[in-house]
Simulated assay, not measured.
Amino acid sequence: MIEAVGERFEPREVPARRSTAGMKWDSASVAGATVKLRFSEGVLASALDRFYFADKRYEKAGCLQVSFNVSGVNSSVWLAETILRFGDGVEVLEPGELIADIRQRIEKMRNLYLKL
């Protein structure tokens, strides 16, 4: 029990962990895929906030691996943009289509700055 300013607050139960198996993150395409990402120690807090409902596994090196299902990665603009926000603190492990999309986006960004 916690008391503050004369008010009493009882501890709450932590909600049960939900699986992402049935969740659809992208309704724009039909084919489904499992996305696997590895986050470095420096971005763990942000990754845990953003991928709260994803299945999580901590690795010995201090990294966090998350996996979740999407209904399709080819048109998942939001997913690529979300991943790129983590900079070099995230590695896409699966699927290959998402790795190729991220690689292409990084190459486009690189080319923008080579012109300077």
Results as ranks from 00 to 15, higher is better:
Thr82Glu: 14
Gly87Trp: 04
Arg38Val: 09
Ile99Cys: 12
Phe39Arg: 01
Thr34Pro: 01
Ala47Gln: 13
Gly6Arg: 00
Leu116Glu: 04
Arg50Phe: 04
Ser67Leu: 06
Gln65Gly: 06
Ser76Phe: 11
Ser19Asp: 06
Arg105Tyr: 02
Trp78Gly: 06
Ser75Pro: 10
Arg50Leu: 15
Arg103Asn: 06
Leu112Tyr: 09
Ser67Glu: 09
Phe86Glu: 00
Ser46Glu: 15
Arg17Gly: 12
Val77Gln: 07
Ala21Arg: 12
Arg110Gly: 15
Asp88Ile: 01
Ser76Lys: 12
Glu13Lys: 13
Ala45His: 11
Asp26Ala: 00
Val90Ala: 02
Ala28Trp: 12
Leu98Gln: 04
Met1Ser: 06
Glu59Leu: 04
Trp25Asn: 03
Ile106Met: 12
Met23Thr: 11
Cys63Met: 06
Ala47Pro: 09
Gly87Lys: 13
Ser40Ile: 03
Glu13Trp: 08
Ala28Leu: 08
Asp49Lys: 15
Ala21Tyr: 14
Ser46Asp: 15
Glu97Gly: 05
Ala31Lys: 15
Ser19Pro: 02
Phe53Gly: 10
Arg18Ile: 10
Tyr52Leu: 07
Tyr58Gln: 05
Glu107Gln: 04
Gly42Cys: 07
Leu84Asn: 09
Leu64Trp: 04
Ala28Glu: 11
Ala28Cys: 08
Pro95Thr: 04
Ala47Asp: 15
Asn111Arg: 15
Arg57His: 12
Ser71Ala: 03
Ser46Leu: 14
Tyr113Val: 09
Ala45Leu: 13
Arg85Phe: 12
Glu41Gln: 10
Glu81Leu: 00
Gly6Phe: 14
Phe68Ala: 05
Arg105Phe: 05
Gly22Trp: 13
Arg8Thr: 13
Asn111Trp: 14
Gly22His: 03
Asp88Lys: 12
Val43Arg: 02
Leu79Arg: 01
Tyr113Leu: 14
Ser67Pro: 00
Arg50Gln: 08
Asp55Ala: 05
Pro95Phe: 14
Gly89Asp: 03
Tyr58Ala: 04
Lys60Pro: 11
Lys56Ile: 00
Arg85Asn: 12
Ala31Phe: 04
Gly22Met: 08
Leu79Lys: 13
Val35Asn: 00
Leu44Gln: 04
Asn69Ser: 08
Arg85Ser: 10
Arg103Tyr: 01
Leu112Phe: 09
Ala47Leu: 15
Ser40Trp: 06
Pro15Val: 05
Lys24Ser: 08
Pro11Ser: 02
Gly42Gln: 05
Gly89Asn: 07
Thr20Arg: 06
Phe68Tyr: 03
Glu97Tyr: 04
Ser27Val: 15
Ser29Cys: 14
Ala100Lys: 10
Leu79Met: 14
Cys63Phe: 02
Lys60Met: 13
Phe9His: 12
Arg18Glu: 14
Lys24Val: 07
Asp26Ser: 07
Lys24His: 00
Ala100Gly: 01
Pro95Ile: 10
Pro15Tyr: 02
Ala21Trp: 08
Thr82His: 08
Lys115Glu: 06
Phe9Thr: 02
Ser40Phe: 09
Leu64Thr: 00
Gly96Ala: 04
Phe39Glu: 03
Leu84Ile: 07
Asp49Phe: 10
Leu84Ala: 08
Gly32Asn: 05
Phe51Val: 01
Lys56Leu: 00
Thr82Cys: 11
Val92Pro: 03
Val70Pro: 02
